[in-house]
Amino acid sequence: MTSLTWTGPALDRARLRRLLQEYGVYAALAVLFAVAVGLDTNFVEMSNIRVQLYQVAPTLLVALGMALVIGTEGIDLSVGAVIALAASVVPLYLGYGLLPALLVSLLLGAASGAVGGAMVAFARIQPIVATLSLMIGVRGLAELINGNSAKPVTESAILDLGSRSLVGIPEMAWIAAVCALLTGFLVRRTTFGRQLVAIGDNRQASRLSGLPVRRVLVTVYVISGVLSALAGLLIVGHGAEADPANQGLNMELNAITAVVVGGTPLTGGRVRVLGTVAGALFMQLITAVLTQHNVHTSYTQIVEAAIICFAVYASQERGTR
């Protein structure tokens, strides 16, 4: 848990609400899992679990960066486009080997984040506008680099990244898990992490306390860009193609959903890393369960919408306490 709040003795109802906000997402995940298994015992089979993990890993990576950005009272809409950009350069640089291709992708992700962060921190453009323009521009750039059509990727090195397993768990999932641990550590234990949370909670007070507000903001967007690029690489590895026109579409929305369902308030000042992991898993599983029981996609979307509304409602009540 990355929660720093102190839960003291309070009125029962207020306390119940607190508990719901703090642990609701874990409880919901557990209940959902139990229901899924109850409906169909095949759900716990390793093959199914592996499929779910393959799908959730990129979303989780993006959501981790998103959680940091949202912690500073910002939002990053450019993540899906960054995925496309990272994917688009893979076929171009794979010829030089796996490492150069990875590095170029991640660097481009960082550069995109730096541009977004600079717009927010120095030009003081609202995050939603800054990253919206970036989202449009970066996807255009990706299509320019790669062309409109999907390019197949056949290098085994990168395909391994998307398909190999370690101890029965996909490498992708390991990577996402390690990143989640690092993010949690970053938020809780490092100077940067604490400054990030303080800036999100009260920017003016942080500035007056001499915190490097601009540097922290730019760094946060850079981290989000790098994590998105990493997600893009995994997507290319798993799908064996680079398709800048379609890859990463709606990813920003999935990531925001995971963060919000995980209990991180959009008003900033709090980053719940474990909650974000649970949120991403929850959204993945609910879609999977509904799909596996042949519920039409339209209904699935409506259910997802209802969940998001409820999550936002629950997290809002913090403020009106």
């Binding site: 720093l4 949370v197 909670d201 009260n202 003016q204 007070a205 000042g269």
Partner: peptide
């Protein structure tokens, strides 16, 4: 508005 970071602890 310019002093406390409300959601953080006394320590922080």
């Amino acid at each position: 508005a310019e002093g406390i970071i409300p959601n953080l602890s006394v320590r922080e």
